[in-house]
């Protein structure tokens, strides 16, 4: 359904995506995984035809550069945050995007019910909470029943409850025969939604592995997501490695696979190194993955010092 062939994207001298190759058959669900700047969002923007690139990308057999309009009709896109006219009403927004996809107004408005936005039609977009905005973005993405869903860190701006709700909605979609390509920093999202994981490192697709193997490679038990100030992250990595952990840099902090007996270990190591932890989240890894919800077992107050 999506074929990415030797795609390279440079911004000046910086190589954002380097010779990426990835094929998603119909119904496949692939997570793009990697640290900030690994090229996840850039690759998604190439798939959407928003950026010029070297190489070729086909969606449903259509070249996204030559037949961009027709290719994008096959794609429902949900961005990190819905950036659209804030003054627009919810129903008005859905009608507008519905018209762009060749739908009638009534069909477009019906999509709101599917994401639980019934009763909010007359609200303006600026009046919606972050979670509701993302649901609206999902309703817009699903207009016209697209064969492909492309999601770019869609839960990044949501709180824990909103995130769990949204992932649950997406899980309902992942089994509906749609092809799904999404970028995420969150293990629980990947474990719930993906069948395969493409690990990106500095623009290159390092490996594409089954989700089960990817989660297993992170360790047993749980993953501790530590949010750290930018200037101490490198030092925290070194301290944690010295303390016997296998941390990975990820987004705004580090991910540390921990066993059930050593959950407090990383905090002890960082406290000894006088490194402040701004926030943390403990994600219990479920190896049944798609069978159940990920369990977010704790979420601590911000600015907590370890």
């Amino acid at each position: 359904m999506i074929r990415i062939e030797h795609v390279t994207k440079k911004f000046g001298r910086t190589v954002a995506v380097d010779d990426a190759c990835l094929t998603l058959p119909p119904g496949d669900s692939v997570a793009l995984w990697g640290a900030n700047g690994a090229g996840k969002t850039t690759l998604i923007r190439c798939v959407l035809g928003l950026l010029r690139f070297r190489g070729r990308i086909h969606v449903g057999g259509l070249d996204v550069r030559r037949s961009g309009k027709a290719a994008r009709l096959l794609i429902g896109y949900v961005p990190q945050e819905l950036g659209f006219y804030d003054d627009l009403g919810v129903a008005e927004a859905v009608r507008f995007f519905g018209r762009l996809k060749g739908l009638r107004s009534t069909d477009a408005e019906a999509s709101l019910a599917g994401v639980g936005l019934t009763g909010h039609e007359s609200k303006r977009i600026r009046e919606l909470s972050g979670g509701m905005k993302q649901r609206l973005a999902l309703a817009i993405a699903l207009l016209g029943d697209p064969a492909v869903l492309v999601l770019d860190e869609v839960t990044a701006s949501l709180d824990a409850v909103g995130r769990a709700e949204f992932v649950s909605m997406l899980r309902g979609l992942s089994g509906s025969g749609r092809t799904m390509l999404f970028a995420s920093h969150r293990v629980e999202e990947v474990a719930t939604l993906a069948e395969r994981v493409a690990v990106l490192d500095r623009g290159r697709i390092d490996r594409v592995v089954p989700c089960r193997d990817f989660v297993a490679s992170l360790g047993h038990g749980a993953v501790l997501h530590l949010v750290l100030p930018a200037h101490v992250r490198e030092r925290a990595m070194l301290s944690l490695k010295a303390g016997g952990f296998t941390p990975r840099m990820n987004g705004v902090g580090v991910l540390v696979p921990v066993s059930s007996e050593q959950k407090a270990g990383p905090f002890r190591v960082l406290a000894e190194a006088s490194i402040r932890v701004d926030d943390f989240e403990l994600v219990a890894l479920d190896h049944g993955m798609n069978a159940s919800e990920p369990r977010v077992s704790n979420r601590h107050a911000k600015e907590q010092r370890s």
Partner: peptide, 10 residues
């Protein structure tokens, strides 16, 4: 960021 979202449509 509205332009990118608009251009991601068909």
């Amino acid at each position: 960021g509205m332009l990118a979202y608009l251009l991601a449509q068909p």
